[in-house]
Design a protein around this nucleic acid. Sequence first.
DNA 1: TCTGGGGTCCTAGGACCC
DNA 2: TCTGGGGTCCTAGGACCC
Length: 432
Amino acid sequence: MQPVFLHIDGNSFYCSCERLFRPQLRAKPVVVLSNNDGCIVALTKEAKALGLKRGVPFFQVRDLIKEQGVTALSSNYELYQSISGRMQRTIAGMIPKMESYSIDEIFGDLTGVADGDPKQLTALVQSIRSRVRQWVGVPTCAGIAPSKTLAKLCDHYAKTYPTFEGVVNWLELSDERRRRAMNLTPVGEVWGIGAKTREKLLAMGIETVLDFAQADAAFVRRRFGVVLERTHRELNGISCIALEENHSARRQIVRTRSFGKACSQMDALIAAVSVHMTEAVRMLRLQKCAAHTVGVLFHTDPFDEGRAQYGVFESTRLDVPCADLMTLTSAALELVRKFYKSGFAYKKAGVFLTDFVEEKRALAPVSLFDFERLDVLRKRERMQSSLDELDRRFGKRAVMMASAKLSGEWIMKRDLLSPCPTTNWNDILKVS
DNA sequence: TCTGGGGTCCTAGGACCC
DNA sequence: TCTGGGGTCCTAGGACCC
């Protein structure tokens, strides 16, 4: 039986989530910014129409945004994660097999559904879209095709050409329309073809998806390897990439953040690494794993080209896999102490965990209590009364952030603060 | 002078995705 | 002044073993 894949994703997902709670933003240009409000990570079609693009640093377009009355929002990942969960549960209830591919995307397996009748498949997917719209409130587009790569391409067509009304079904297109669509689409739009490969293909005169799909398979294999050969086959309707229903179990966990302001003290790195490790271990325990390797990274500001750069990406293999916050944090802090060099202004710090094994023992969730035992909080006695006050007013998360903040130059606008009733640093610092 | 061959494991780096 | 933060997979080459 010929496989049939579905791809659905949310339109301007982060912006759509924000619009749910701010209906006045409907049909208006909106952008959502990355962590330190550094650059644009999501934007609505109204914002795209003004020439704004994903990935552009905010400061470069600040004037344009002001002039055009674009709403710029700090990101709120906890909100997006929660909406994403609702969207995916809604879809999961309507199709036999599903893979959660990213925060706003799913792949589904529709093989054998509706006896493979293309018209019925399109109708089914339209009903999924309207249910998501109605139950969750997020607009989506979808593609249906015999391979994942084609399904994603069809979704792209659905987004690009509104006449399709949100769903493009490869199985319903004539050969002629398929060729026309592929010929209109730049090769870089294909899932699996990034900037580097695109440049190489352009240099060979391969400009459109059609050019690439018609290229010689052996040639693609020889010049670009097995990965791109798979993409090539997928574009020709041969499914090579299977649905992964258990996509969510991670093989590594990384937590990093840029500092709002570069810092040079080792204390600040220690504070940052401790906070990141607390989050990383929380994730690790959620997926019931222990990590055999623990690592840290920190580096100077790569955009500050005038200054000497220093970067660290180091890891330790533990004697035994471990899911204990204290042990993992100690190992990470040891790396920080070993590789820290004074005289540099550090802009980014983080931790990573990898080489996972399943952890069968029951694990208590990471609590603030664990965190307080860390040497970061040596100053704890001094700070205790203000921390108690913080705890009463804003909860433990705020205590954690304030502790880190007070033990180093840790400046962030709003990251990690969503569970608190305030996202305003000044409120928190006033109390502490 | 002439200096095997094949397998496995690990790592670093590069490419890709959102 | 201000430039995100996650992830995945593949490959080549070196170390090591017999």
